[in-house]
Design a protein around this nucleic acid. Structure first.
Lengths: 303, 303
DNA sequence: CCTACACATGAATGGAATTCATCTATACTG
DNA sequence: CAGTATAGATGAATTCCATTCATGTGTAGG
């Protein structure tokens, strides 16, 4: 087996040697000069030879260093050319995602920049609308993120996006949370209906053993709008916490929750794709990225 | 800045592609097939393309995979050739170390195989003897490990190998340690003198405030022989724990120690080298390796 | 038909790469 | 000439990547 030193160290050496500067190499590789210094030292230990002579504020290659560099620069050039073949702009990948609108604006939108940074070769086309895409007919969509019940279609695979806690929330102007409250206290407040959420106030009342007042309630067919109404002080909204992350973080909404409450956690969002395309790299990369984002979001991805 | 995927993944891909088998690639790279699988998947995600078609018990390159492979094989060949220039056998490095004999046999010897594995390009020449090498005159020695007092020579740098606890030890046949003992109990036992250790029984008695009996004591001018005598049940030896690691681990010796005792910890071993050669890679690699071994040995490297 | 083998995958782990904090030695500038 | 800025060095701490482990799947081969 041909033995090579750690490849990242070789790469670091080549850049530093080519530029004649650890600082410049750090800049090119987006690391600190300290990282360059450590890597070069490590490579020198591996070869048991000095590759640079150090002066104040400068480095110079030794004969051994020059000997190593000439072949390496060619090697990395070749490597770059080989990789570039698979990354050429005229083969830019497009990933078309159709997303439920509130999930798009309240959860995915604030995060999508991270996906673009992690996968710069992929152009994302994000559309939204309340209807789940028919992936058998609409081949322009590769991945759908739906709300409500899991879509069931032949040759379409579905994955739930985890259990979502659906909790009453309202503006702090409406209810002080500095003292303990009960479910009974909640239903005495004005309530807001978020129509598309499969969890309704009736469900919540059943689980928390209180009677739902028969009064008429304002309702919205967008979770984000229901959330906005609650922020405006129009009442208590019952919605998934995922839609209220920034409002909760900023204190614009507070949870009406406590030891005497029972939460409802259901799978209400699903992503789906055609089974035949499941191993498509951009598609599987997005799926994995999304699952990873869910795992690190404040409410976590519960199984 | 030219952007490359993680280089270890590229290397893994090249080997797997060239051999047409994840299992064979695993064997060549000394990792598990699972590692190959993960690396290839990761590379496919980075490029957002499939590089292999998976069949049962076989893989086959896709057109993209073939496109990537041809340049990479040349690149890694070049890289290997460049690295081989600095590792050619006719430039095999020799590192000559002269070591105090007991340290050599009791501490360094059991470990030296690890150095050879970590630095296969270095041929180690290990000599031992009680006299510190005169590094100014004996240029055939590059590093000395001495016992006793720190050598002081012009143009020679010295580094202590840490504080060493020097503790009475004996065979469990001689003294039961299941009940508390006192320093007074120790000096009633037969004592063994390890002559070259700068810590003597007289020192130990002074520190522990007991009178050293005037009886004659067997003495050895090798710490390892003194340790062996103690294992044979000839008496209590006062020596550095470093010389007795395996005996203590095997229960052939026990420590005579306890709350009422005062340990003596001194720097008794030193390594030294010519200042002009301090950055010689093999030499500095050995120094760093030795310091790391001390840090992970049972008594640790105290500063 | 059963066993063995190659690849897949998620969770856990160890170690390598990197950052951070601080230092040294000039080079440069006012 | 003195003070400041810069590049590289180093050790400790932290982060993240590569790898292993455990388990699973789907044949190929005996």
């Amino acid at each position: 087996m041909r033995r090579l030193p750690p490849l990242p160290a070789l790469r670091t050496f080549e850049v530093a040697a080519r530029l004649g500067s650890f600082a410049a190499a750090a800049s090119e590789l987006n690391v600190t000069p300290s990282a360059i210094s450590h890597q070069v030292r490590s490579l020198e230990a591996w070869f048991e030879r000095l590759l640079f002579v150090r002066g104040t504020r400068r480095v110079e290659l030794t004969p051994d260093g020059r000997r190593l560099l000439s072949g390496l620069t060619q090697a990395f050039d070749l490597m770059h050319d080989s990789c570039a073949v698979l990354r050429s702009p005229d083969q830019v990948r497009v990933l078309a995602v159709h997303c439920a609108p509130s999930f798009a604006s309240k959860w995915l939108g604030p995060r999508i920049g991270r996906f673009m940074q992690a996968y710069p070769a992929t152009t994302l086309r994000l559309t939204s609308g309340p209807e789940p895409p028919d992936l058998r007919r609409n081949t322009g969509i590769q991945l759908g993120i739906t709300y409500g019940a899991p879509p069931e279609r032949a040759a379409v695979e579905v994955q739930a996006l985890g259990l979502e806690p659906t909790v009453p929330m309202c503006s702090p102007r409406i209810a002080s949370t500095s003292e303990p409250i009960t479910p009974q206290d909640v239903v005495r407040l004005p309530l807001i209906e978020s129509k598309l959420n499969p969890v309704h106030w009736a469900d919540w009342c059943r689980v928390n053993r209180v009677r739902l007042p028969p009064a008429a309630r304002p309702s919205f067919d967008r979770g984000s709008m229901a959330i906005a109404a609650a922020v405006d002080g129009l009442g208590v909204v019952l919605e998934t916490l995922r839609f209220a992350e920034s409002e909760l973080a900023r204190g614009e909404l507070v949870l009406l929750d406590g030891p005497g409450f029972r939460r409802i956690e259901r799978e209400t969002h699903f992503m789906c794709w055609r089974r035949a395309e499941r191993d498509h790299p951009a598609l599987s990369a997005f799926r994995e990225w999304l699952v990873a984002q869910l795992a690190t979001s404040p409410d976590g991805l519960s199984t």
